[in-house]
Nucleic acid binder design. Structure first.
Lengths: 173, 173
DNA sequence: AAACATTATTTGCGCTTGCAACTAAATCAA
DNA sequence: TTGATTTAGTTGCAAGCGCAAATAATGTTT
């Protein structure tokens, strides 16, 4: 986003890119959100949670890990998970070794919901993003974004996993 | 974001890029948000509103134009502007030709707040984004994002202006 | 073991949002 | 002109969020 004075002419390409980045993000997310809603899938945000759980080593995560991975506050995640449990998409069981921690995993219905949503979601990504970017460009973008993530993200955020960059050796529950 | 089944191995580069895109957005925005807060500036979202008003042709915009440009619902914008008026950063005056429309413009204090925020914000963009992207890469990103915007954005969204693609005739302060 | 400190998660609260219903102003119809 | 329609913007409502305080389970002293 450019500054308050000069704006149109003198903006550096990085600033222009930043601003476009914000706008594209907002537009694409809006489309995807409403696309999922229209097909009666779980929401974009819920998808993110279920996917993160599904991908976790051992297919289970503690509340705080999940919150961190999805970039939501702990309290926000607590309530989000409560709703998902309520709807039968997630199990949330207390850890036997340490009664303070709760582990979350997909239920059968949760897995089905995730799979159904993926069918829709992948099409929406295609239509709102992927179709407009060549494979070479996508690799470039991925490289740049990964670099940004390495520099500004504290550590294990979703993208690392997606890009297969993680080296976490852990095994399941 | 990759799908529920295969994920790490078989993901297309576009899907990897998409997921990283989401994560980088969330992380960078989080940093910028808290950076602005720490320096006692207006919020990221308010900045966006004030900047959009400032850049508008004639430095004034109707409520609905503003909402569209900033990608907020009309009701959300109505309340956001009410708060900004309350705080003395914006004027909101009823149009004399058509009493239904309200035009918004920066107050003096609003302009000062915008300028002060820009000093901080530009540093935060630098640190969270620009510093990690070369000028050539930034141009590439800008090109790709602009293309995406052209394809998925209905029309005049902020990015068009930032990229100097608009043909609006405005001049500065 | 009793008291204190620490860690994991959940609640209370206030704020912001979007949708849908509402009000007000302008335009169209007769 | 009066009445119906459309348009611009604002509210009522029921979410969701983050912060800070509360709760609960462990750990650590002494």
């Amino acid at each position: 986003m450019s500054g308050p004075i000069e704006t149109e002419a003198g903006a550096r390409p990085q600033q222009v890119a930043w601003r476009l980045f914000l706008t594209v993000h907002a537009l694409a997310c809006r489309r995807i959100d409403s696309g999922l809603l229209a097909e009666e899938c779980i929401s974009f945000d819920d998808y993110d949670v279920l996917l993160t759980v599904n991908e976790a080593a051992g297919e289970t995560l503690r509340m705080s890990e999940l919150a961190e991975a999805v970039l939501l506050s702990n309290s926000g995640m607590s309530r989000r998970v409560a709703r998902l449990v309520e709807r039968g998409l997630l199990h949330r069981d207390q850890c036997t070794q340490d009664g303070r921690v709760f582990r979350v995993r997909l239920s059968r219905a949760g897995r089905r919901a995730l799979e159904k949503a993926w069918e829709v979601y992948s099409g929406l990504i295609e239509e709102s993003f992927a179709a407009h970017v060549s494979e070479g460009e996508a690799k470039m973008l991925g490289g740049i974004f990964q670099r940004l993530l390495d520099r500004i993200g504290s550590e294990k955020h979703r993208g690392l996993l997606a890009a297969g960059v993680t080296d976490a050796p852990k095994r399941k529950s």
